[in-house]
């Protein structure tokens, strides 16, 4: 296994008076696709937001590509090559699809080849290129949020529940896109509730429970261990969709 591109050690996060993360520890290997799983409220979204600097870790260390990013500001972290797709998508509704992507491309206008690659997977974006993003459907907004994160090559992608409410055909495209990204130079950390999707996609897994990481390891192994899934993810998840 290559050196991890991202590693969290003993990360604690408090939001107001609530203590959400109690010493989170896991690695995302370079060129890997790690799924971050866990029940509702386990702290997955908070973990992504803490990595991104949107919540400040009160203790612990987050390292990205060998650098300590724990105290860096959000824009600094983004400039190091981390892209973030939040659960709420947070597309800019007032801006057109084109404008959303133009903003996301920091190094100048988006490259034609890259755009074509994105359009091949998410054709709706090309169709509604000049439409305000607020007028897109929920699934199309999700595509735009992902497209915004990959419009330029990034080293690490943090994605929060990309398949929520998506049609199966789009999910398949999404999986394909993530795989191709992984085969390029991008590592991914994806939060997911849908285990069927997670097991098709990921090659590593970290499972959170109550603000801690309860299990890390290989996806194939985890997928084969029904008892462990039952224990960590509970019955609430449709493990065999």
């Amino acid at each position: 296994m290559s050196a991890p591109i991202l590693s969290l050690r003993g990360v604690e996060t408090r939001i107001g008076r609530y203590h959400i993360l109690h010493g989170v520890e896991f690695d995302v290997p370079e060129g890997g696709l790690t799924m971050l799983l866990g029940r509702n409220g386990a702290g997955k979204t908070t973990t992504l937001r803490t990595i991104m600097g949107l919540w400040r870790a009160s203790a612990g260390e987050i390292r990205f590509a060998g650098r300590d990013i724990t105290r860096m500001s959000t824009p600094e972290i983004a400039m190091l090559g981390i892209a973030y797709v939040p659960e709420s998508m947070a597309i800019f509704a007032d801006l057109t699809v084109r404008e959303n992507l133009v903003l996301a491309a920091r190094q100048g206008p988006p490259e034609r080849k890259r755009l074509e690659w994105i359009f091949a997977r998410f054709s709706a974006l090309e169709r509604f290129w000049h439409l305000p993003a607020g007028h897109l459907s929920g699934g199309q907004k999700q595509m735009l949020a992902v497209a915004r994160a990959i419009v330029e090559p990034r080293r690490l992608l943090l994605v929060d529940e990309p398949t929520k409410g998506l049609a199966p055909a789009i999910v398949a495209n999404m999986i394909e896109a993530f795989r191709e990204l992984k085969d390029g130079a991008t590592s991914l950390l994806v939060v997911e509730q849908n285990f069927a999707f997670a097991r098709r996609l990921g090659n590593g897994v970290a499972v959170m429970d109550d603000g801690r990481v309860a299990h890390t390891g290989d996806m194939a192994q985890f997928a084969a261990d029904d008892a462990l899934q039952q224990h960590l993810l509970g019955l609430g998840m449709d493990a065999h969709q």
Partner: peptide, 24 residues
């Protein structure tokens, strides 16, 4: 203009503009 796009985006969601790498 790009600055204008940033301002409009920032008015809507400043946090996301920061997550894209801009100092709001």
């Amino acid at each position: 203009t790009r600055i204008g796009l940033l301002i409009r985006a920032g008015v809507e969601n400043g946090e996301m503009v920061e997550a894209l790498g801009y100092r709001i």
